[in-house]
Design a protein around this nucleic acid. Structure first.
Lengths: 154, 154
DNA sequence: TTGTTACATTGGAATGGTTCTCATCTGTTA
DNA sequence: TAACAGATGAGAACCATTCCAATGTAACAA
């Protein structure tokens, strides 16, 4: 179970988004807020086996889809066949390892400007009314660089 | 069938990447180069029904996966459940309509710098050895803005 | 507090895009 | 031209996700 602070925070988040507060939603959101492991549905189910031993897979899917619709959570594909989820409390993007699938969160000062600029340019050029974006960077994580015997020449 | 110019170009692309030149690969690549419709496997199969009436679905999947591995083609999800493919001859990114799934190519002067900067920052922060990136922007396409009766206030 | 109602949860069945298998075929290279 | 590694094709298999119908429950009002 997540800490009381997290439980209070997530309760407020659900209310702010006018989402009906069910134990399932509350606990799943708290799990996502307090874990940065980019879990799949199965990972979440395993992680909640004590808090919600009887939760249905459909509920987890429904809940996550609802969170995605409300922009609380983003979906990620790392090539392993199933979708990964990430609580999106603060703006960031992801670096994904092309060898092992490891996902890490990345941000830097000025990233928010980069993002805004991309959205602005896109709106101008395409005429789309922009609601969001998704940025990913691919490469070999440090561990896989070693594992594969690749040396960085910098 | 694509034009002779496209057929020559794609032949060279395959050879440059040391890919065995089969009629299937040649024709699929030519299709992707000469269409900017971000097709699914089924779209491609339909589009090639005259050139390759007996092609197997597995072959199209295999071929596209090979092209993706060689960075000739990128995969796109627009939420309709199947993967879309796009020939990646020149750097660009995609704007995807959250209502109808329409995908359009976007680029602008300076985009390449934005991209390089993102990759550089990511390498510094994460330690990943970067090999590529993927950027997408979401919103309502002009048509859906009208269809949904949404007025832009700018 | 209670009743009402719209919405959420569940488990199992159904779906369908993608991968797998393996026999056959074919580019490529020597 | 021979030999072989690799590509193709048809269909079966896979499996993540969605669908469905019955049941349960959060939210709101009286």
């Amino acid at each position: 179970m997540a800490s009381n602070a997290v439980m209070e925070e997530t309760l407020q988040v659900l209310k702010d988004h006018k989402l009906r507060v069910t134990p399932q939603r509350h606990i799943i959101l708290a799990y996502l807020v307090s874990h940065h492991n980019h879990p799949t549905v199965e990972t979440i189910r395993d992680g909640l086996s004590k808090d919600l031993p009887n939760i249905g897979a459909s509920t987890i899917y429904n809940t996550l889809n609802t969170f995605v619709d409300h922009h609380l959570v983003v979906e990620l594909q790392n090539g392993d066949g199933s979708t990964h989820y990430d609580y999106f409390g603060t703006p960031h993007y992801h670096a994904i390892c092309t060898n092992c699938g490891r996902i890490v969160d990345v941000t830097y000062p000025g990233f928010s400007d980069t993002e805004k600029n991309l959205e602005k340019k896109t709106a101008e050029i395409s005429g789309y009314m922009i609601s969001g974006n998704h940025m990913e960077v691919y490469g070999l994580c440090p561990e896989c660089q070693i594992k594969l015997g690749i040396k960085k020449n910098d």
